[in-house]
Nucleic acid binder design. Structure first.
Length: 457
RNA sequence: GGCGCGAUAGCAAAGCGGUUAUGCACCGGAUUGCAAAUCCGUGUAGGUGGGUUCGACUCCCGCUCGCGCCUCCA
């Protein structure tokens, strides 16, 4: 039985799909005006893992991850770059796709774009107005009236009065309540806009997700995910909009992944302390980054540093090294085998990937002892469920970092042959000199029965 | 100020009311020409003060420290 920590209930709950055997899941994706950073990498990888596991336990999954391609920051960036918004967003969607693919993230079933769902948003706003939850303010914006929606603050655990107390933002005088949020922004000079019953304008940020999720998954679906920072106000507002418009429950399980941190501080655009995915991938294998993310629990904070990635690389090397000792292919997992059972138990416990990884290491140790092809198959099969261990061991162990500057495989082989010759005539001094030379170039040699293997340190 | 989360060995990171987490690093042994890899073995934990209990890292309370949300953010 799968258990999921539901942010709304603040506890782990048995997962019961609305329709037996199938799951509908929506995750807030990226706003595409810049490169994806490590925080985005975490959302991508975490929910990819969730999606894979849901399928692994036999559920039919419809996974939607949206793309926000119209908003203040996009407009600002496009004007700074002096380019069209559609060019800017198309470029960063492409970069996002490249990064996601590198990280082994499978394509969601749908990736709706905000600009392609304006009619659905307008319909939602119309419904909200009809239900007395939306009003057009003097300035022309259409706002959501939070005071009229009972239960506002349930997800974030805040009462309206608590929220008032912490107000740090200039109050917009045209709002009925300072916490009311914008559904439709009236058009401004030089900004893109759409026609609407409330005049020309463009959608507020929160309405996008409500419109796209209900359009593709219906008004009531199983899982809604995203980064912890979206819990308030974004997800809170989504609930208010969707339930306010449809008059029924919106989402059964809310999942929020923890932040990536740098030096114990949240990594974010506003703090400017972020690393982009492609920056990291210049020096580290993408699978190492994926493993680094999955070896922590998705709800825990994840501190990033080069040292931690080095550590993750060493650990992943151990798994691939074990795999090298027995031929294997990613066969179907034998779920009656003890390791697989432990793995499933861990994953069913709110996606406990650190525990699942520990099982992989136990399996590797066992494999190193037994050289069992069956165990190698299990290791590959279980790894595949996390999107790991899909490559040939040599390919991983000998991979060259994207930044280059490494000794080529051909030169390495040449030196290894030279060393072989030296070894044959018992000239160990010469052999060791070559080995030391390779080591200083970041290449480690392993002499075995069938000759010498090498890998990058 | 309000609300919430966390504190585990040198580092990273889980589970668990009593029995080895796991990985990296470290130490001893096997193996090796020597290494590397691997295997065998050992060591290093649970912020702090109380409480509950036969027994607490695990449950409860206080304190301290750290982080997050209350504004755009994954």
């Amino acid at each position: 039985m799968l258990k999921i920590y539901n942010s709304l209930a603040r506890e782990k709950q048995d997962f019961v799909p609305i329709n037996p055997g199938s799951v509908r899941m929506y995750v807030c994706g990226m706003t595409v005006y810049d490169y994806c950073h490590l925080g985005h990498a975490r959302v991508l990888v975490v929910f990819d893992m969730v999606q894979r596991w849901l399928r692994a336990i036999g559920l039919e999954v419809c996974y939607v991850r949206n793309i926000t391609d119209i908003d203040d920051k996009i407009i600002k960036r496009a004007s700074e770059n002096n380019e069209r918004i559609s060019e800017l967003t198309a470029r960063f969607i492409r970069f996002m796709d490249e990064d996601a693919a590198a990280l082994g993230v499978e394509k969601p079933d749908h990736e709706p774009k905000a600009t392609e769902h304006v009619p659905q948003m307008l319909e939602l706003i119309r419904q909200l107005e009809h239900n007395g939850l939306a009003y057009q303010a003097a300035a022309g914006d259409v706002n959501f009236s939070v005071r009229k929606f009972p239960g506002y603050g349930r997800l974030s655990g805040k009462s309206l009065d608590d929220l008032r107390a912490g107000e740090r933002v200039d109050v917009d005088a045209s709002k009925e309540d300072p916490l009311d949020f914008v559904l439709w922004k009236h058009a401004r000079e030089g900004e893109p806009c759409w026609a609407s019953p409330w005049g020309e304008g463009r959608p507020g940020w929160h309405i996008e997700c409500s419109a796209m999720s209900s359009h593709l998954l219906g008004p009531h679906f199983d899982i809604h995910g995203g980064g912890q920072d979206l819990q308030f106000p974004h997800h809170e507002n989504e609930i208010a909009q969707s339930e306010g418009a449809h008059g029924k429950r919106f989402v059964n399980y809310w999942m929020h992944n923890g932040f990536v941190r740098i030096d114990d501080e949240k990594m974010s655009k506003s703090l400017g302390n972020f690393f982009t995915i492609r920056q990291i991938l210049r020096n580290y294998d993408a699978e190492v980054l994926r493993f680094f993310i999955l070896r922590a629990h998705y709800r825990s904070p994840l501190n990033y540093s080069d040292t931690h990635l080095d550590d993750a690389r060493q650990a992943l090397s151990r798994l691939y090294t074990a795999l090298k000792s027995a031929p294997s292919s990613a066969a179907a997992v034998d779920w009656d085998e003890p390791h697989a059972m432990r793995f499933a138990e861990a994953m069913n416990d709110d996606f406990n990937t650190p525990e699942a990884c520990a099982v992989l290491f136990d399996l590797a140790a066992e494999l190193n002892r037994s050289k069992s092809t069956a165990l190698a198959g299990q290791l590959r099969g279980l790894g595949a469920l996390l999107g790991l261990l899909g490559r040939e061991p040599q390919a991983f162990l000998q991979a060259t970092p994207a930044s280059g500057g490494e000794m080529s495989a051909a030169s390495i082989e040449l030196l290894i042959n030279e060393r072989m010759t030296a070894k044959k005539r018992k000239d160990f001094a010469a052999a060791d000199r070559i080995r030391a030379e390779l080591l200083s170039a970041g290449v480690v040699l392993e002499d075995g029965a069938q000759g010498t293997n090498w890998r990058r340190a």
